[in-house]
Simulated scan of single mutants.
Amino acid sequence: MNNQFTKNFGAFEDDGLNPTASSVATHLYDYGNLSVKNGWIKDGMVFVKCMRESLAEKINVSVDTITRTLRVLEDKGWIIVKRQRNAANIYFLPKYYDLNSDIKQQNATLENANCNQSQTNFKQSYTNETDVTCKSSKNKQIEMPKTKIGNEENKQVKISGFDRMQNLVDSLKQKACFGHDLINILVKYSENTGVLYNYAKLIFKAKKTVIAKLVQNGKPEAKDALRFENNISLMPELTDFMKSLIIKTRCTKSIKNVAGYITKSLHEFFKDAVGGYMSIERHAKLVKNNKGFNIPIIKLDK
């Protein structure tokens, strides 16, 4: 057992994975070493192909145990699963280079990775004033802000796909006040940073539009109602709503304009959220002022 194998196993244990999950994750990431040599890199991530039966035999557990364990790893963000019919599933390893920083990256080729020529390495180099663009299969292309490198000549900065994703996640947590569960759902269904950015952008634009319209119509309380810090029920409801919305847009072929459909649905969601929040606030004020509770006081005979 090599040092890197042991190191990875320890990293998975530190993340709170049980021994079985740590073992499965370690084997998948160990297979990633061969994938790197073969150039199996797609959309900025190393990937492996593996049958559940093979993992079960390797680790000496049942196939059902492997299935449950893979779900745990997927929820934890260690793998992204692309399920295939009558073929081995494809497991993307989004944190491969984070764990194996000492392993030199190799380019993917058409012969051994079956990737398009436009696909790039997991770690890309950007020079001065480089435009970073991300594209998903269903959502239109999004142009990300330019990366400012500095004034030094010939200076290059290597930014991995995982790092870009992590930076965006941190921003959604700290600046946007997105909840942990909502971020997990968005990351789970985002093939790359562009898709995640697109989903977050749609949420922000829809909320901003609804607030502006309601304020214009004489309802300034909409600002407080749609502030995540104020409305404690808004975030969990939005999380469930986005999950069902994303799944529906991906499973319903008749939905052609995905961005438009999500935007319209979010408008209705935020309008309803404002109405619900204000109803609760009015009820709370009534209770505070003892209105609507005319309970007679009866004096009992001694």
Rank of each mutant, 00 (worst) to 15 (best):
E53T: 15
A11V: 10
N112D: 13
T127C: 08
A259E: 09
I183T: 04
K271C: 08
E281Y: 12
T6K: 11
Q216M: 04
K138H: 15
K138L: 12
F162Y: 13
D43V: 12
N290L: 14
I295S: 11
V169E: 13
W40A: 04
E268N: 15
W78M: 06
W78Y: 14
N154M: 06
R52Q: 15
L55A: 07
K271R: 12
E281C: 12
T120R: 10
R85V: 05
N192L: 06
T20S: 03
F162Q: 15
N8T: 07
V157M: 07
G292T: 14
S279F: 11
K213D: 03
Y29L: 07
K123A: 09
N121I: 01
P220E: 13
G44I: 06
I255F: 02
N217C: 10
L172G: 04
G32A: 02
L286F: 12
S22N: 11
K219R: 08
Y96I: 01
D14P: 05
E221I: 11
S35V: 03
E111F: 03
N217V: 02
D102F: 02
Y97P: 01
A273C: 08
T209M: 02
A56Q: 10
N3V: 10
C251I: 11
K155I: 07
L226D: 10
N3K: 14
K146G: 05
T26K: 08
E237W: 00
D163Y: 06
L245D: 04
V132L: 15
Q166V: 04
D75E: 05
A222P: 08
L214C: 02
Y97F: 13
H267C: 02
L34P: 00
N112V: 01
K205N: 07
V169P: 00
L17N: 14
T20K: 06
Y189P: 04
A88F: 02
S62H: 03
N192M: 08
V72F: 00
Y261V: 05
V274D: 02
I90L: 10
R71M: 06
V258K: 01
L186W: 05
T67Q: 06
S23D: 06
S244N: 13
F204Y: 03
V61C: 07
K285T: 15
S62C: 03
N139E: 14
N289G: 10
S244M: 09
N100E: 01
M45G: 03
S171P: 00
A225G: 13
V215F: 08
I232K: 11
T20V: 10
E281D: 11
S101K: 11
K248M: 05
G10I: 12
I41T: 08
K201T: 13
L202K: 07
T69A: 03
E129T: 13
I183L: 04
N217M: 12
K288C: 06
H180T: 14
K285Q: 15
N18P: 02
A88T: 10
N198W: 06
W40Y: 04
L182I: 02
I90S: 07
I149G: 05
Q84D: 11
